[in-house]
Design a protein around this nucleic acid. Structure first.
Length: 711
RNA sequence: GGGGUGGUAGUUAAGUCGGUUAUAACGCCGGCCUGUCACGUCGGAGGUCGCGGGUUCGAGUCCCGUCCGCCCCGCCA
C-alpha cells in the first residue's frame, strides 16, 4: 500500500476532503448559543395531569411540558435561518432551564409500551413514552405515530381534546422524544388494519417533550423504503438502530442468546469465562496485539477463540462448559466476517461426535422453536466430508435444491472426446427440463465465462448438452463422441427429454470447485430457492481430513493441531498420514457454515505423532503449547466440543443479508468504526510508556508527517 | 496485495455526445386543513457534483492521482 501516511489521517477522518460533520452541527457550532435561546423550553409550571386525575384536569389546562417557543406564540426573538445550511431545529434544552424532574411524565412512568394497546384497553388512561415516528397535521387534528421498540401507537391531538397539548403538538417533528398521557379510544371505522395497535388510538391530554431532534440524516420512519448508504448508516449508527427492522433483528438476537443460555444450562453446562488477553499463538488467524505496559516489549494477543482454555476446563473437571464469547481475528472483512464476532463456545468431557451432536441439536431445535416457531426435525442429517464433496463439490452444501454432481469419469473413458478422455476427472450437473428454459445459448455462453473466472475455479471451459424431445443427445461436441458414450452419460445422469447437462473436465480439485460455484450460480439464476421460502436445511458434515496438503507438499492441520483422528485410523497416522480422517465436524445451514468442532486428542503419544507430522519439533511444541501438554500429563478426560457462530445464526434467523445487520456496532470493510472514527494514532506519551516507536509508515514523506488526528 | 462497483441537495436517485440557470421524489421551512395513517394542498429554501490535479474556449460528464462505502479473490473456520 502506498497511501498510509495520508491513510493514517484518513483513518481519523475518512472523508478528509469534506467536513466530518453535517451542516446542522456546523451551524450549531457557530450559532448554537443564539439558537438555543430561541428554543429554550419553558420551565414546567405545574405537575402534569396524571391519568387518574384526567377527568377534572382539562379545565386546569394541561401540562404541556417544555415547548419550543415558550408559550408558542413566537414572541421570543427567533433568529431567522439565514444561511442555507441552517436548520430549523435547534439543539435541545439549555442547561439551567431543564424542567423539574418531579413534574415530568418520567416520574409517572409509562403504563404501556407503544405496541401493547388493543381494543380491550379502550377507556384506559395511559402514559406512553417514545419517539415521533410520523406526524400528520390536519389543523384541527394532529396525528402522531408514537414509536418505541415494541411498536407504533397513533396519538391524536385536537383543540377539543386538549387545546394546549394540541398547540404544543404543532411543534413536534420526527424523532422528538416525547411522553404523552391520555385516554385510549376505539377507532371504529377509522381503524388501521396494518398496525397491531390499529384498533385504538390515544386522545392526548398531556404532551411532554423530553428532547428535540435535528432533522435526522437517516429517515427512521422510512426504514426499509429507503436504502440509505452504508457509510451514513454506520456514522449515525444510533439512528440506524432505531429503525424498526433493525430493532427486530436485535430483539431476535437477544432471544437467541437467552434460549442458548437456558438450553445449555438445562443440559448441565456451566457458563464459564476465559480471558480475552492471551498468549500469542502463531499460525491460524492473525492476532490482534495488545502491548503490555508492565512487561515492556511484550504483547498479549486478543483471543481468536477460547480453544485451549476450554480444553483446560475439561482437564479441570468442569465436565461441561459453554460460553457466549467474543473472538478476535485480524483478517480481511467480508459480508459475513467481522474482526470481532461472537461464538457460542461449547466443550464437554467424555465426548463422542454423536454426544456433541445431540447437545447441539437440542439447542438448534429449541432456538428455532422458541425464536421462530419452527420445528426442526432431529436428529439432523449427516454427511461425510467425502460424500459432501462428491455430491456437491462443497464441504458446506446448500441442500435446499438438487443439481447434484454426477461422476462421469468412467463413462467418458474411451468415448472419443479428447477433452473428456484426457481429464483426470469429469463430472456433470443435470438441470431438469422444468428449470432449463432460461439456459439459452447466450446464457450458456455467459456460464462458460463464469466457470473460466479465476475466483470460480478457473475451468478451461464448460461443456453442455441438451436432451431433445426424442431423447437425442444435442451438444456441440456430440459428433466427437461415440453414441455409446452419449447413452452412458444419459443413463448415469438420469437425463430426461428437455434436460440440460453441464460438464466440467479437469483436475479433481478444479472440477469440484467449479461445479460448486456453478451450482450456486444456477440456484440464483434459475431461482431454485425462492427468497421468501423459509427453509432450513441443516446438515452435519463429518469425517473431515485431519490434514491438508499445502502447495509445498507439507501437511497442515485442517482444523487445529489438537483434533483427534478417527480412533479406527490411528494406524494410518503412521503409514499414510495424508489419508487420515479426523473426528471433526461442521454444522451447515443452507450452505452456510454456522459451526465447527472436533473431538480433541487427549493421548500424549497421539499428540506427539501429530506434531511430528506437522513438522513441529518437541522443543517448538513445548514452547507453543507447553502448558497444554503439561496439563495433559495430569489425567485429562477424553473431550471434544464445538463453536457456533452466533452472528451468522442471527443473520440467517432474521433473514438479514449482512452480518452488519445483526452486530450493533460493526466495522467497515477497512476495519474502521465510522461513528467513533476508530482506529486512531496513539499519543506519543502513550507509546513512550509502552516503549513503542512507530516505523516509517508506508507512503510517508521523508521527515514524516504528523499522525495526529486532525479533528 | 488484486478484481469489480459506487460517491450529484438533508436522503434516495436522474443527468444523453463535454455546451444555457444541474433535475426529480421524499425530507426540510412557511401558510391552509377535524380522520389521516407514505394524509392532502399552496408557496419557499436548499448544491465545494467525495477530494486534488490535468485536458479543454468550456468538465458532474474526459484523463491521472487520491480518500471512502459495498461485493469478491487472496487471507480467514
Amino acid at each position: 500500500m502506498s497511501e498510509t501516511c495520508t491513510n493514517r489521517s484518513g483513518m481519523a477522518r475518512p472523508d478528509v476532503g469534506g467536513s466530518r460533520w453535517p451542516p446542522s452541527t456546523r451551524a450549531r457550532c457557530s450559532r448554537g448559543r443564539l439558537r438555543s435561546r430561541a428554543f429554550a423550553p419553558a420551565p414546567c409550571a405545574r405537575p402534569p395531569d396524571l391519568p387518574a386525575r384526567r377527568g377534572g384536569s382539562r379545565r386546569d389546562g394541561p401540562h404541556v411540558g417544555p415547548t419550543l417557543d415558550g408559550a408558542g406564540t413566537g414572541r421570543r426573538p427567533r433568529p431567522r435561518p439565514t444561511a442555507a445550511r441552517t436548520r430549523r431545529r435547534g439543539p435541545a434544552a439549555d442547561a439551567g432551564t431543564v424542567p423539574s424532574i418531579m413534574t415530568s411524565l418520567l416520574v409517572t412512568g409509562r403504563t404501556h409500551s407503544c405496541g401493547a394497546l388493543r381494543a380491550d384497553h379502550v377507556g384506559n388512561d395511559v402514559v406512553l413514552l417514545g419517539w415521533v415516528h410520523r406526524r400528520r397535521d390536519h389543523g384541527g387534528r394532529i396525528f402522531v405515530d408514537l414509536r418505541d421498540r415494541e411498536g407504533l401507537t397513533q396519538v391524536v391531538f385536537g383543540p377539543d381534546i386538549d387545546a394546549a397539548a394540541h398547540e404544543a403538538a404543532d411543534k413536534l417533528r420526527s424523532e422528538f422524544c416525547i411522553g404523552i398521557a391520555g385516554k385510549v379510544i376505539a377507532r371504529g371505522d377509522n381503524a388501521n388494519p396494518n398496525l397491531p395497535t390499529g384498533a385504538i388510538e390515544i386522545e392526548a391530554s398531556t404532551l411532554e417533550i423530553f428532547s428535540q431532534a435535528d432533522t435526522p440524516p437517516i429517515s427512521v420512519a422510512d426504514d426499509d423504503r429507503i436504502d440509505t448508504g452504508e457509510n451514513l448508516r454506520l456514522r449515525y449508527r444510533y439512528l440506524d438502530l432505531r429503525r424498526p427492522s433493525l430493532q427486530k433483528n436485535f430483539i431476535t438476537r437477544s432471544k437467541i442468546a437467552f434460549v442458548t443460555r437456558r438450553t445449555m444450562t438445562e443440559q448441565g453446562f456451566l457458563e464459564l469465562e476465559t480471558p480475552y488477553m492471551v498468549k500469542y499463538t502463531p499460525g491460524g488467524a492473525r492476532n490482534f496485539l495488545v502491548p503490555s505496559r508492565l512487561n515492556p516489549g511484550t504483547f498479549y494477543a486478543l483471543a481468536e477463540s477460547p480453544q485451549i482454555f476450554k480444553q483446560l476446563f475439561m482437564v479441570a473437571g468442569f465436565d461441561r462448559y459453554f460460553q457466549i464469547t467474543r473472538c478476535f481475528r485480524d483478517e480481511d472483512l467480508r459480508n459475513d466476517r467481522q474482526p470481532e464476532f461472537t461464538q457460542i463456545d461449547v466443550e464437554l468431557s467424555f465426548a463422542t461426535p454423536e454426544r456433541v451432536f445431540e447437545v447441539m441439536e437440542r439447542l438448534v431445535a429449541n432456538l428455532w422453536r422458541e425464536v421462530l416457531g419452527v420445528e426442526i426435525p432431529t436428529p439432523l442429517p449427516r454427511l461425510s466430508w467425502a460424500e459432501a464433496m462428491g455430491r456437491y463439490g462443497s464441504d458446506k452444501p446448500d441442500r435446499r435444491f438438487g443439481l447434484e454432481l454426477v461422476e462421469l469419469t468412467a463413462q467418458v473413458a474411451g468415448s472419443g472426446f479428447r477433452v473428456f478422455e484426457q481429464a483426470a476427472c469429469v463430472k456433470g450437473i443435470t438441470v431438469p427440463a422444468a428449470h432449463a428454459a432460461p439456459l439459452t445459448r447466450s446464457q450458456l455462453d455467459k456460464l462458460t465465462d463464469f466457470v473460466k473466472k479465476r475466483e470460480n475455479g478457473g475451468a478451461k471451459g464448460l461443456a453442455w448438452a441438451r436432451i431433445g424431445d426424442d431423447g437425442s443427445f444435442v451438444a456441440p461436441f456430440a459428433k466427437s463422441m461415440s453414441e455409446a458414450a452419449h447413452k452412458a452419460i444419459v443413463a448415469q445422469m438420469g437425463a430426461q427429454p428437455g434436460d440440460v447437462l453441464l460438464f466440467i473436465a479437469d483436475t479433481w480439485h478444479t472440477v469440484h470447485q467449479v461445479l460448486c460455484a456453478l451450482r450456486l450460480e444456477l440456484r440464483d439464476l434459475l431461482q431454485l430457492v425462492p427468497a421468501d421460502a423459509r427453509r432450513w436445511e441443516f446438515l452435519w458434515v463429518t469425517d473431515f481430513p485431519l490434514f491438508e496438503q499445502r502447495d509445498d507438499g507439507t501437511l497442515v492441520a485442517a482444523h487445529h493441531p489438537f483434533t483427534s483422528p478417527r480412533t479406527d485410523q490411528l494406524e494410518l497416522l503412521h503409514s499414510d498420514p495424508g489419508k487420515v480422517l479426523a473426528q471433526a465436524y461442521d454444522l451447515v445451514l443452507n450452505g452456510n457454515e454456522i459451526g465447527g468442532g472436533s473431538i480433541r486428542i487427549h493421548r500424549s503419544d497421539v499428540q506427539a505423532r501429530v506434531f511430528e507430522i506437522l513438522g513441529l519439533s518437541q522443543a517448538a511444541a513445548q514452547q507453543k503449547f507447553g502448558f497444554l501438554l503439561e496439563a495433559f500429563k495430569y489425567g485429562p478426560p477424553p473431550h471434544g466440543g464445538i463453536a457456533l457462530g452466533l452472528d451468522r445464526i442471527a443473520m440467517l434467523m432474521t433473514g438479514a443479508t449482512s452480518l452488519r445487520d445483526v452486530i450493533a456496532y460493526p466495522k467497515t470493510q477497512k476495519g474502521q468504526d465510522l461513528m467513533t472514527l476508530c482506529p486512531t494514532p496513539a499519543d506519543d506519551a502513550q507509546l513512550e510508556e509502552l516503549f513503542i516507536r512507530l516505523r516509517p509508515l508506508p507512503g510517508a514523506k521523508e521527515g514524516g508527517e504528523s499522525t495526529e488526528p486532525s479533528a
